[in-house]
Amino acid sequence: MKTTKLRLLFPSDLTAKPLTYHLVKDFDLVYNIFQAHIKPGMKGDLIIEVIGRESNIEKGINFLVESGVIVEILTKSINLDEDGCVHCGACTAVCPSGALYLDKDAKLCFDNSKCIVCELCVEACPARVIKVNFSENS
């Protein structure tokens, strides 16, 4: 099983079609929607996570591309604005993987390699300097 994050850009003539339904039915993929800006008749922008067999994910992506959807493979990451951080440590209370921690000088550090992108820190941060980044995977 593999998890891949995708950004799907729908041309306006495709927004009324149940494309994600086919991902489930035809390719046995489970999906979570992170962001959706879709209105029938308008351009659509959807950020989803698909979970399934690697070969099925590939087939599913091919199906979407053939249907006219522009597909970007995304990596989601947590971004800490270090200049705005006050190093209080409130985020460390909710970080389950130890990616956010206070070093020996009580300075807040972020170890991206440990981050599981659970996003609990985003709203736990009183200074509101932690954001979710969606970036394209090469």
């Binding site: 006050v86 440590g89 409130a90 206070l102 009580a106």
Partner: peptide, 13 residues
Amino acid sequence: VPTAPLSSLYMAR
């Protein structure tokens, strides 16, 4: 049990 601070020792220093 894990503990976490809410006031900034870094800024206090």
